[in-house]
């Protein structure tokens, strides 16, 4: 069964068709990758899925309901979380405070509860703390929880973003180039993490990645786009040998063939 169905999605900026009648599915429990050359429109697809861009036409169905007209926070509340291509941490806040943001849509105490420090509010705060620590432990940076997020090394900042996304308790997790800027060891741990997220937390994963090695290792299905159009879809081996894909990537072989 598909957890996400995209049908004829089209997005225009001025005269430019950034996404052009794109259709694909993401199966529940799977690990699917979206690849394509620079500027192909991958991040734009994510932005449409998460409600940051309004698509001009087409439909997006998530868990069997259309989410086309929903605001981003509503989509997150329905169980889709994302990370950003460029780090978007809350820089003036600590690591654990960053991760607590994910729990916002799963909790409800407001100003009154905070002012009176009611029993319910204290229970909820404890729960937020517990989940945040759990997520930090899951990605392996619990020991840094009280440091300012911006003072962490780059690789660890990425992990804060992952923990933050996990804390929203998603059903579907979108990673936008999670391996960018990571060294070899960190990439290996990322692959492991992606698998654990699926196995231990049963979260479906949809990722954008330029590192073909990583894509081929983890994904069960690959969707390839170029100039906003889908040019191939299928298993890793199948896609790799597709002449259209080779053509789209021609001249980029050295970068991506590691």
């Amino acid at each position: 069964m598909a957890i996400l169905e995209v049908k004829d999605l089209t997005l225009r900026f001025g005269g430019l068709e950034v996404i052009d009648t794109l259709s694909f599915d993401v199966e529940e429990g799977g690990i699917v990758s979206l690849i394509g050359p620079n500027g192909a429109g991958k991040t734009s697809v994510f932005n449409c899925l998460t409600g940051f861009y309004r698509a001009n036409a087409g439909d997006i169905r998530f868990r069997n309901e259309s989410i086309m007209s929903l605001k981003p926070h509503k989509i997150t509340a329905r169980g889709m979380a994302r990370t950003f291509q460029n780090l978007r941490l809350f820089k003036q806040m600590t690591v654990i405070e960053n991760v607590k943001s994910g729990m916002h849509c799963r909790t409800r105490e407001g100003a009154l509860g905070a002012l009176l420090r009611s029993a319910g509010q204290r229970r909820e705060e404890a729960e937020i703390e517990r989940v945040a620590e759990e997520c930090l432990a899951f990605v392996g940076i619990l020991e840094h929880k009280d440091r300012l997020a911006r003072n962490l090394p780059y690789g660890d900042q990425r992990r804060v973003e992952w923990a933050r996304a996990l804390a929203t308790r998603p059903k579907l997790l979108l990673f936008d180039e999670p391996a960018a800027g990571l060294n070899y060891d960190e990439k290996e741990r990322l692959i492991d993490l992606i698998r654990r997220i699926r196995e231990e937390l049963s979260i479906t994963i949809f990722l954008i990645e330029h590192d073909m090695g990583l894509v081929m290792k983890v994904s069960e299905k690959v969707v390839v786009i170029d100039y906003g159009k889908k040019i191939a879809e299928g298993g890793c081996a199948e896609v790799q040998s597709n002449p259209k894909v080779i053509e789209a990537y021609l001249g980029k072989e050295d970068e991506d063939g590691n």
Binding site: T50, F52, K71, P72, H73, T76, A77, A81, R82, F84, R88, L89, F90, S101, G102, H104, C105, R106, R164, A165, T168
Partner: peptide, 9 residues
């Protein structure tokens, strides 16, 4: 934007 992505209105 990040706040919105984390489910905050």
């Amino acid at each position: 934007d990040a706040a919105e992505a984390m489910g905050i209105d």
